[in-house]
Amino acid sequence: MSEAGVIHDIGYQRYTGPRLGRRAALTALYVHGLRSAFGLGRSAKAKIFPWMVVGILLLVAVILAAVRSQLGEVIFTYVQFDDQMSWLIIFFVAILAPQLMSRDFRSGTLPLYFSRPLRAADYVLAKFAAMVTAVWLLLGVPQLIMFLGAAFTTKTGARGVWNEFLDLVPGWGYSLLWALLFSGIGLLIASLTGKQAFAAGGIVAVFLLTTPVVGVLSVLPSTTANHLAGLVSPMTVIAGVGAWLSDSNPEMEFNVGQFGPIYAIEAVCLIAVCLLLLLARYRKVASL
């Protein structure tokens, strides 16, 4: 005896609204990544570390602005501020990159993303843009505070403010270079594993374990080796670009000599290679 089937109407309706497409998906993914960088929309525990980093950087900027306004002494230039705060940025990237990339592997949401019009290139672009924006804001906003402190206490009026602004713009460009390279390397490493702890450890290792090698090469008898020593570590590659562009960087442990353009070329190549490898990685994932 066969039982008759019954169709139940449980209220499902077809979607009749607008189809927003790839651009809306990319924008939503970017905004979500940027909010995640600062723990917005997440638990209080997730907000502790990013806002602690924000607080430290802002505090340092306020102190530098206060010292300059009261004593007229420039402790750090805008470029030197980035170099001095780079250690905090390393750990910020080591925490953020696995959240943006490794979590999607672990939770299995990538097939869901790529089942829609979103492409692998869109996914990589949104994640990369979100991380670059977050890192740039971490450095750029404190630099703005330093600028405001100098601008409101200048003794040469509008001319002094303009000259200070001309110093700020290269500082912002230098911050963007830090953000681009750190984000590219961090996201690439994080994309290789679904375990956030492993990804964070790998990111820190790449940045910190290559730095002592620079110190060893910088004391070799060869002058050329001393000048090229910074090419070994991503941190000193960027510092080398800063030294070349500013023609002076007393904080560096080595001198780039006449090889400044080589540092700039390597920085650009590293960023491009990281993006290409990320794209290749997620195209492979999307095709599975």
Rank of each mutant, 00 (worst) to 15 (best):
222 S>L: 09
247 D>G: 10
215 G>A: 08
263 Y>G: 07
196 Q>N: 10
180 L>H: 01
79 V>E: 05
139 L>K: 01
56 I>S: 00
108 G>N: 05
200 A>Y: 09
22 R>C: 03
105 F>R: 14
207 F>I: 02
70 Q>H: 11
144 L>Q: 04
95 I>Q: 11
181 L>Y: 01
142 P>D: 06
93 V>R: 02
139 L>Q: 06
244 W>S: 14
171 G>D: 03
7 I>E: 12
236 T>Y: 15
32 H>A: 12
28 A>M: 07
13 Q>H: 10
37 A>N: 10
266 E>N: 08
141 V>I: 15
20 L>I: 02
178 W>G: 00
107 S>K: 07
139 L>D: 01
134 A>V: 08
280 A>T: 07
173 G>E: 04
39 G>H: 07
50 P>R: 09
75 I>H: 01
89 I>Q: 02
110 L>R: 02
266 E>Q: 15
37 A>G: 14
99 Q>K: 09
41 G>E: 06
283 R>L: 10
73 E>P: 00
257 G>Q: 11
119 R>G: 00
10 I>T: 11
137 L>G: 06
107 S>H: 07
28 A>K: 09
140 G>T: 06
151 A>E: 08
80 Q>L: 10
125 L>N: 01
125 L>A: 15
198 F>R: 12
170 P>R: 05
243 A>D: 14
201 G>P: 10
